[in-house]
Design a protein around this nucleic acid. Structure first.
Lengths: 169, 169
DNA sequence: TATTGTTATACTCTATAACTATA
DNA sequence: TATAGTTATAGAGTATAACAATA
């Protein structure tokens, strides 16, 4: 009927909250769509999920590391890493070697079979990311990257503050 | 030991896949951190999750609509909308009115209590988004928005193509 | 037959804490 | 006591399909 009336009877001058254009919502939708599109590269082919994918890629990049290091690098809780590694071990894609200097931890790495999978998937994933980015104006790509990293820093900081009031020790 | 040797014995010239800086990963981490930070505004206070939050915000913006329209506007499946609405109805935050022109659907809207909740939460959510964005270089903000929307379009298209090979009818 | 919306089912995912082994 | 990692548990969330009512 009318464009402007009755948005608020309380006389607010602020911008109204709209889901469309609300950053947390846009980010979530974007992340979900992109994750789902990416997952078709590895999910159907190898029956693995995001945690396994991350372990694979992390070991593919770094060669050998502990579960703790994998978790730190890929933003995953140790239980999630543990289960992902266990699954990849069962599939003979990841192998473990005890650290004789500290028997609590173990060095994990890709087996030859795991390396084969990685070598098959990595170029496809890179290609996927490239295709995706191709729809973004080249001038906007660096800005996107900068912005996402800043947003991660800021929101992680907020979350840490809540988990640990009065500052981390 | 060495920076460059043995990255690949197969002589690849492509950039290696690194989780850090891989767009789908960055997006996922960013979205999760931001969602978690935002949820402290509504999750603890009202014991609701993302679907309920989205229904609340959608009805707050549009006033009255069907479950189907809510789902379409907030990118949620009808079962998710149905359950979120059911929960909000139990809490007396959302009311339904039959559509006499089509009895299959119903018009949903916020009750006065639901409007109160919305009026309390909306400014906090807007403030949160503003604070978040404040860490992003003003020159990058528009680029971020454009990029996210393009990425959503492109990845949704990819997903639709998979769900519906040979193009939608 | 198609559409709106609800419910049932089974499945996956997740968080938490408890636990083992080692330091 | 603290840390690396695993396992147990229970709860949340999910997808799918089946279903009822209406068109």
């Amino acid at each position: 009927m009318n464009d402007v009336i009755d948005k608020e009877t309380t006389g607010n001058t602020e911008a109204a909250l709209k889901l469309d254009g609300f950053l947390p919502y846009t980010l979530n939708v974007c992340s979900n769509q992109v994750s789902q599109a990416l997952s078709r590269i590895y999910a159907d082919r190898y029956k693995i999920g995001v945690p396994e994918w991350r372990v694979l890629v992390t070991l593919g990049e770094f060669g050998m590391m502990t579960a703790k290091a994998i978790g730190h690098h890929s933003c995953m809780h140790k239980t999630k890493v543990s289960r992902a590694v266990a699954l990849l071990e069962r599939r003979k894609l990841v192998a473990r070697r005890a650290n004789r200097a500290d028997l609590r931890e173990a060095f994990l790495s890709l087996t030859p079979a795991g390396r084969d999978v990685y070598d098959e998937l990595a170029p496809m994933a890179l290609d996927f990311a490239e295709q995706l980015l191709s729809v973004v104006d080249p001038a906007d790509r660096a800005a996107l990257d900068r912005a996402l990293k800043k947003l991660i820093d800021r929101s992680s900081q907020i979350n840490d503050d809540i988990a640990n009031p009065r500052g981390p020790r």
